[in-house]
């Protein structure tokens, strides 16, 4: 995990798996953690899964979190705040396009801030 890592937070594990497949095909050198669906595998989000995904891919360059709708963002932010992670940021960008752009940038060895800025470009309100 020499590069910035990514965590995908979605209401569905199919979404997180699918996005990971799309990204790793082009960028194999970036670790991608997934937190899709609830504990029971239903549609929803789960803060414990998010925490686990972050810890699985955390390296010295940090982690960027991408989320889909509603509770995904709230749980992503809560997971970061409650565990007081450093170098773990929630990114304001569409989950697929944002994570894809971020992975490409991360794969080039860019810093957390650089990767986040690239992903948020065009999207931040």
């Amino acid at each position: 995990m020499a590069n910035v890592s990514i965590v995908l937070v979605s209401h569905s594990s199919k979404v997180t798996e699918g996005i990971r497949d799309i990204i790793t095909q082009m960028v194999p050198a970036v670790s991608i953690g997934v937190a899709g669906g609830t504990e029971e595998g239903e549609i929803g989000t789960n803060i414990d899964k998010i925490k686990q995904a972050i810890e699985e891919v955390q390296g010295e360059k940090g982690v960027l979190l991408f989320y889909d709708i509603g509770s995904a963002k709230m749980n992503a932010e809560l997971a970061v705040e409650m565990n007081e992670y450093k170098n773990v940021h929630v990114v304001e960008a569409p989950i697929l396009e944002g994570a894809f752009v971020a992975a490409v940038e991360a794969g080039m060895g860019k810093s957390l801030e650089e990767v986040q800025a690239a992903a948020e470009k065009n999207y931040r309100d």
């Binding site: 803060i47 509770s71 709230m74 749980n75």
Partner: peptide, 15 residues
């Protein structure tokens, strides 16, 4: 509630 609810109500009531 944070761990078990699964929807927006989880982080909201949890908070």
């Amino acid at each position: 509630l944070l761990s078990k609810v699964g929807g927006a109500a989880g982080p909201l009531y949890g908070t």
